[in-house]
Design a protein around this nucleic acid. Sequence first.
RNA 1: GCUUAUGUGGCUCAGUGGUAGAGCACUUCCUUGGUAAGGAAGAGGUCGGGGGUUCAAUUCCCCUCAUAAGCUCCA
Length: 647
Amino acid sequence: MITVTLKDGTKKEYEEGITIQNIAKSISQGLGKSAICAKVNGEITDLTNTVDEDINLEILTFDTEYNEKEPEDAFPARRVFWHTTAHILAQAVKRLYPDVKLTIGPPIDKGFYYDFEFQNPFSADDLAKVEKEMQKIVKENLSLKRFVLPRNEAIELMKKRGESYKIELIDSLPEDEELSFYEQGEFIDLCVGKHLPSTGMVKSLKLLSVAGAYWRADQSNTMLTRIYGISYPKKELLDAYLNRLEEAKKRDHRKLGKELELFDIYEEGPGFPFFLPKGMVIRNQLEDFWRIEHEKAGYLEIRTPIILNEELWKRSGHYDHYKDNMYSTIIDEEIYRVKPMNCPGALLVYKSKLHSYRDLPKRVGELGLVHRHELSGALHGLMRVRCFTQDDAHIFMMPEHIKDEIKGVFELIDKFYSIFGFTYKIELSTRPENSMGSDEDWEMATNSLKEALFDMGRDYKINEGDGAFYGPKIDFHLEDSIGRTWQCGTIQLDFQMPERFDLTYIGSDNEKHRPIMIHRVIYGSVERFIGILTEHFAAAFPLWLSPVQIKILPVSHSSYEYSKKISEEFIKSGFRTQIDIRNEKIGFKIREAQLSKIPYMLIIGDKEVEQNTITVRSLRGGDLGTYSLYDFIQKITKENTNKDLTN
RNA sequence: GCUUAUGUGGCUCAGUGGUAGAGCACUUCCUUGGUAAGGAAGAGGUCGGGGGUUCAAUUCCCCUCAUAAGCUCCA
């Protein structure tokens, strides 16, 4: 007999050799039925595994949640569920197109994909056919069996099946790695697992899209066909998911930006957004706020030119490392480059005079317009454009300033992001392949960032090889409406540029020393930040950002005069106010104001004229009742200046 | 840039090998109406661009541009 200790501490005895599935069934009918996999002594395990010794056991269902650091481990059972669905997908594809080659098919954050090499093009219309075949496989309720082969037999098996990519995978695995396979019906796949005991558990599935993906994520390799899908143990869950996806799409900043006339991108300028009057209000508010907060934090502001001589870009290293992304022009027969970054300009400013150690750290900000030639396929609304404004700043300092300055930037980031209720993820990006400087410099810089993160007790993920060419960086990532993350803020530590530009300061020893530099942005790109904001608020911006804050809606002709008077009062008090004197019914005017996401509507009819009051309707709260003009101005002035989001 | 889609009046979309339709928006008129669409009439498009097939192309084919999802790359 063996003893099984459950998560709640209870112990049970079983015969040796019992499967975990059977244990699950014996524990509770309901739990046993929805069991997907298990944690045996903390390790994810297939339910088909047998138990021969005493264990700690936790049965995992689709909804078992872990709050682990890596989001991909939050729902371990889902990943097992989706992984098996990926195998079902591969099996269906193999049945319909036998000469297709398998590559890899993992679960992802939401669902799964499988990459295939098709001999003939696979079109989106074929998805329905594959989906049908998958449903057949589910109905067949094939059981999944795991088996292990020695290396030579594994290669032999894959050779026989013509799976050349799998052989490549086996070859790349370390010698001592166990080669496990999962088998369901006629389908066999090289796979570490884990998997469901049978295909019948995948009650409801949907293939979502077809896309290309490079083999091993390398642009020089074959482009494979990637099929994305999602699956659930219940149809209602799938429907709910698809519903949520639809809802999220309604918050797409590209759609809202156009509908609400905030910004637009035309065919004549791919990646070059136009800001419309209402979008400009938001921009200006963000920039005003930025200036006020940065002045408080001891920053100076400069503005440097957009076009500068190519010689400068050669000196900074941008020419060598970033040439393909830079636009250029010719002035008086010399090549000039459009700036992709603001730092060289800031360096020239620093160099224009001598600096004493007493003046450091020196924080110099710039709302700098940069242009970068991004690949056409990478463009994405305001999130990824070819011309954008970075809320940049460069901090020139001595080594002993590093920690405090990083901390200071963190404080600013926290202040800015918390106002909008953003939660962010931190990544530390390390040295990329194509970079400049010595290993020692990079190590020192990377360690400084790590230490700062450690001191502040921040969790972060390491993003290998994703740093800037001149230094490592801490990135702050924000989510869009459908959960894609975009890098916004960043803090980069740079030992290279000061060297390249021979920056100096005079130390207390009266000698010249080399300063260290931080490049940092808070919004990241004002454009991208507005994109994120738009999706976050579904364009119902907080009062201080709203393009139109108050819309006055006269009920009829008889209240026009009074409405105009009220309107002037609000404008005088500094509120962005509009009046709707169209010959329309009040219901219609309310509907339009509501759809334009205007925070406050003032309904003005005979009653208000008579009593010298206003009736207020808020976007979210509906009818707020009657106010005196004075009281209401007091109320919203407070809301406006506190940047209060609670309303 | 690559893979797969898409591209019809300002917007959202229908449609067809014989030179186009709806709703909203727009203009004019009627309606003066109290918390999410009052009514009527009218104007507006050489169907992304170029080429080809055809007696005839918005519809079929090729090229190109833009957009979307994903890959690669990045703020």
